[in-house]
Design a protein around this nucleic acid. Structure first.
Lengths: 352, 352
DNA sequence: CGCCCCATTGATCCGCTTCAATAGCTGTGG
DNA sequence: CCACAGCTATTGAAGCGGATCAATGGGGCG
């Protein structure tokens, strides 16, 4: 019988869910908050953990972080439980290494399918480890790249390094697309230029991000520009090379597909904001996004031109600066030269 | 030795390219415009055709159309040659059944790699036809779905039909995403709603389009709404079912990947316009896009609410209508009830 | 030390949204 | 078959938000 650890602060949800799981013939351990959860996880080593995100004492992210540091607990499948809220929270969790997540309220079928699929994955993984010592060697080649993390490793070992100075253009709109890039170090913007020469930044990319996808089967040239915002090192692999890899690694292909659709949603979010939001909102969410994304030091936007920030927001540089000044007067941020420090993150998020 | 037919009106380009190809040991036939090209193709049955898009007499699309109607010529690989121009033109060509395209100016390596890869595909195809009569039966199942067209057929035969009245919502933001949809008949919009309740249409989908992708490996809920604009029939297949199919059909997965990245570019284009274009431009390109996309009768926008059009453009309904009135006065369009008829398509495209 | 690029602030102007009122269309029920 | 309700299209007027042009201030790099 499989053991499941359920960490959830709301007693009602906790008990209902536990009951459900027991009916489904799992052994259930429960914890009312993160700290207890971590202790149980370490001592009992359950087969799977389901964990709420918003909790007092120690929240879900913290639990995941602690457990993923220890060898004994790091490979236990971890499923987040969250209210139907920001997509971003989810991605944050996934980036930290969660395996799946379920939104509250959920029905049984969702819950069980998530659990089963995660347990099944572990089973397959174990089997592979036991049966295939030979394969281990291939992992270093292109035989067995299951996840995007594997692909990143492959890039590090096999791709061509390409270093760029701040401001240098990586590709132009209309260039043939021959490479897929992974950022090794630095920040890159992809942008478009309209007929009047105004620049709009469509994506900001940092260490660990891929870019440069157009099409695998066709010779479609790039539809946008890419340039380094600061000194940057990229790893690039030819389109065809990557295609060969994908041909041998179906799971990876599906992961990349997900990566891309995630991307689509982010851009659509941007689209909505672009269409209807006030300059105040655009400004606020641009600095929030940038500081969150780049995160050298928390809550600070550093070393980026005002004009670049403005062209993420899609507004005039002067307007952007004016709004910054307003925010400063209102005590929401502090400006020190080129750096912007966020003082009141909550109020900034609530701006409309 | 393989024979290549080159159809190109510009004598310089034609001769240079022909020379290149001959050096590479192909037999080359040349034609100075579409009509000659079609004749040569029918009589000589080359192994591959390279054809310019913009030509006098009969343009590239026409050539492709004619040749794809005849059994003898329809399976000859067809590569378009085009100036580095609108992405859209390319997609148009691909939809009509071209196999690849090359942008001018090109270098030899591009040209040869395109040719080789197409010739290789044909070789594989032939081999399959000769060696595998058994497989033929499987094609009807889920064994061998190589292209998106195959997938569409599969949907028609296996997916659950779902009919909707105009205005009916297909899924809400926050809903769990369990299905992938193919539109059988009708028009669907996907849209987002901002905090003030304003609606922005992120995509318009018609017969033959897929939508509803979120993630294959995770339980990510929909991040937008989808609703029928007119009475619509969709075919839907569960996420897991599609995933199973993709697991068995790698080529199809790559095609879907391309389909999605194509999508990304379209949305980014929209983003740029949203950010910096005037209302006149937004209005013009909205009606152009809609009439082109929906194309019941050429150059007419029919049966769509003004408010829907305005929320593609991302502007107020009143502003949209006002701009329509202006266009009418300027003789660019004609308005008849809910219908909009485009009179001067060129001028409309040039609006800024 | 000086130049140049970038940040900042001011003033003006116009395009677009919003609110409001009216006209036109469509479908439903008596 | 007509009348009325409810929705959609259209036009008008007013007010404001943001772009643009222009000028000044500041900081880093050669």
């Amino acid at each position: 019988m499989k053991t499941i650890l359920l960490i959830e602060d709301d007693a009602v949800v906790r008990e209902n869910t536990a009951e459900l799981l027991e009916l489904a013939n799992y052994k259930v351990l429960t914890a009312a908050h993160g700290k207890i959860g971590v202790n149980i996880a370490k001592t009992q080593l359950p087969d799977l953990i389901i964990c709420d995100i918003m909790m007092p004492e120690l929240n879900g992210y913290g639990v995941l972080q602690i457990l993923s540091k220890e060898k004994a607990t790091q490979q236990i499948p971890f499923i987040f439980l969250s209210a139907k809220t920001e997509h971003k929270d989810v991605r944050k969790g996934m980036n930290m290494g969660a395996d799946d997540y379920i939104t509250k309220p959920f029905d049984e079928s969702e819950l069980f399918s998530a659990i089963e699929s995660r347990l099944a994955k572990v089973a397959i993984l174990n089997e592979n480890i036991h049966t295939s010592n030979k394969k281990e060697q291939i992992v270093a080649n292109e035989g067995e790249l299951k996840t995007i993390e594997h692909l990143k490793n492959y890039f590090i070992n096999n791709a061509e390094e390409h270093t760029l100075f701040a401001g240098e253009v990586i590709y132009h709109q209309g260039d043939n697309s021959n490479y897929i890039y992974l950022i090794n170090k630095g920040i890159v913007k992809t942008y478009k230029i309209d007929e009047q020469g105004k620049e709009l930044i469509t994506e900001l990319l940092k260490e660990g991000d891929f870019f440069g996808f157009t099409s695998f089967s066709l010779n479609i040239p790039h539809q946008e520009f890419a340039a380094a915002i600061e000194d940057t090192s990229t790893l690039r692999l030819s389109n065809n090379h990557l295609k060969t890899i994908l041909n041998n690694n179906h799971d990876l292909t599906l992961e990349l597909f997900d990566y891309l659709s995630d991307n689509v949603y982010e851009i659509k979010e941007h689209l909505l904001e672009m269409a209807y939001s006030s300059v105040r909102k655009k400004t606020a969410s641009t600095i929030l996004q940038f500081s969150e994304k780049i995160k050298k030091t928390p809550n600070i936007c550093v070393q980026i031109l005002r004009s670049d920030l403005a062209s993420i927001a899609g507004i005039a540089t002067e307007t952007f600066i004016r709004t910054l000044s307003d925010f400063k007067k209102e005590g929401l941020i502090d400006v020190d030269g080129r750096n912007i420090k966020i003082l009141n993150i909550e109020k900034l998020k609530r701006i409309n």
